[in-house]
């Protein structure tokens, strides 16, 4: 029972590790690491699903009748690209967050935000001039 579903167990364990990191860690980079592990577990799920016992790579060869299913592999290629794009966007956001807040810890960001909550002045970050001023300070 357990060995028969070995791949599924790996998937579930990885998935839970990933989700746990996203929830438990306050560091934004670590959250992204968790997110990547979470996504990777799904990739493994798709890839292992396509494997057929005794099947070979899906290339037509004489004398071979059983092939692994290539479709999930192709699907997951797309999903991997999507995953990389997500990670890239997330890291770019973290760089901007670091510039604007000076920290990448969730708690400190929330603390800074709650201090500004009452004032209706905008915390402008987009104009590069202001950023430069901050750096000079």
């Amino acid at each position: 029972m357990i060995m028969g579903l070995f791949n599924d167990w790996v998937v579930v364990v990885l998935m839970m590790i990933g989700l746990y990191i996203i929830i438990a860690h306050g560091n934004l980079i670590k959250k992204i690491v968790g997110l990547t592990i979470f996504q990777t577990s799904v990739f493994i799920f798709y890839i292992s699903m396509a494997k057929i016992d005794g099947g070979t790579a899906p290339i037509l060869v004489d004398g071979v009748t059983q092939y692994s299913n290539p479709l999930p592999h192709v699907l997951i290629l797309t999903a991997i690209v999507v995953g990389i794009a997500t990670t890239a966007v997330a890291l770019a956001l973290i760089v901007r967050i670091k510039e604007a807040y000076g920290t990448i810890e969730e708690e400190e960001i929330q603390e800074q935000d709650s201090q500004h909550k009452d004032s209706h002045k905008l915390n402008i970050h987009n104009s590069s001039e202001i950023n430069r001023d901050k750096k000079e300070c």
């Binding site: 989700l19 959250k31 807040y101």
Partner: peptide, 20 residues
């Protein structure tokens, strides 16, 4: 792209939730 820096934090949170 929002002017307020909290837009970045909101986008990040949306990214995590949306990707999950």
């Amino acid at each position: 792209l929002g002017k307020d820096r909290r837009a970045l934090w909101a986008a990040y949170q949306y990214l995590i939730m949306g990707t999950i």
